[in-house]
Design a protein around this nucleic acid. Structure first.
Lengths: 205, 205
DNA sequence: CTATTTCTTGAGCGATGACTCAAGAAGTGA
DNA sequence: TCACTTCTTGAGTCATCGCTCAAGAAATAG
């Protein structure tokens, strides 16, 4: 009798997670189109045939990379902070401070993969660009939801504009990612984060 | 006698400025590598031979595009505001408000060419990426210079940090460019600009 | 062992990338 | 008019792109 976990045939010679991590680094660094199948097979240490058998085509591989990135610490810290922090203000403070620490971290390519990996695409890959744009705009919507809740709960003043605040924080985060790619240090980005938090609506004295 | 302005030989059949404007639109929209020579020759309405005779190779054309962009209203509004406004605060307020109006303007591709046209490049075009990165960092330095001057003149409090403020404004501008590419409207970006200005150091009451 | 299944391998496919060049066309100077 | 210069044209070069496939290798089932 075949156990349900018993695999038939020749087992894969590479670890799928490790190979995906190697692909992630390349897409993160150079973006979707500027990363070639040749570079991917070299970094993942597999031949084209194995890559296509295991991951489908280049677009499927990229989407799998993006999903894995979204579940990694670097890709998930925003959602984590939104869930874990009691107050909206605490959540956004934590998000900005963690972004300042994470984006320039030399253990991985600078900035955020979702923000920078499909900025420049040809017309036939416009769907890849739209795929990441949708993810970014979903993040923006999550920001607005969190801020609207905070307003309903009385944390945020009725005069504040949740949608405008959400767009502002989205912009500063995307800008910090770009600055990290241009060489900004964690110390510099932390200063940017603290200044950005000054936009939080204050009670007037 | 030959006047110095007299051209010999067959005259060009295309207007150089018009052709450059067409190339600018393509690079602005898709970025450096995702724009092909085929698309360029079609948009500029010239054949490859004419393009290479008139502009050199693809990199030279791109650099000429960037320089022309920097002298255009859309590409020069930051420098113009820094020069024309009496106060640093007035300059940055004007920069952010103009960015909110200009970046989503439908008469041209969204966002800033300098910010987004070479985000994703292959290793052999890393110099193009560095070329634009240097331009952005030069802008950052100009911000810091303007703010340091304001501090020396007493406009900005001695407690303020010109370098940190400069990096903050650079980040928010780059973020606004990205947001415009993701579909943000002028109204939304104006709200972002106004919130961003709240970071300006205030006298405490 | 043989049969079956799955993965690996390396050669190579068609399409497209940036770029070139010889030949012709359209001007000027004398 | 003819010689000279400059620009245009279209075919074509070489490299590289994403991707495929037949043949072989490594596992299990019986």
């Amino acid at each position: 009798m075949n156990g349900p976990g018993v695999k038939r045939g020749r087992p894969p010679a590479f670890d799928r997670t490790t190979a995906l991590a190697a692909a992630t680094r390349l897409f993160w660094e150079h973006g979707y189109e500027a990363t070639t199948i040749g570079e991917l097979t070299r970094a993942m240490d597999i031949k084209p045939g194995s890559l296509y058998a295991a991951f489908g085509d280049k677009k499927s591989l990229f989407k799998e990379v993006v999903h894995a990135y979204g579940r990694s610490p670097v890709g998930a810290f925003i959602g984590t902070a939104l869930e874990e922090e009691r107050t909206a203000r605490g959540a956004f403070r934590r998000i900005l401070r963690e972004a300042a620490a994470v984006y320039p971290d030399p253990s991985h390519p600078a900035g955020c993969l979702t923000i920078s990996a499909a900025t420049n695409v040809t017309v036939q890959d416009a769907d890849i660009s739209a795929f990441l744009s949708d993810l970014r705009n979903a993040n923006l919507a999550a920001f607005e939801t969190r801020l609207t809740t905070a307003q309903r709960q009385g944390e945020l003043s009725a005069a504040a504009n949740p949608r405008a605040l959400a767009a502002y924080f989205a912009a500063i985060i995307q800008g910090m990612s770009q600055r990290a790619r241009d060489g900004a240090t964690a110390a510099e980005l932390t200063e940017t984060a603290e200044l950005a938090l000054a936009a939080w609506p204050q009670a007037r004295g």
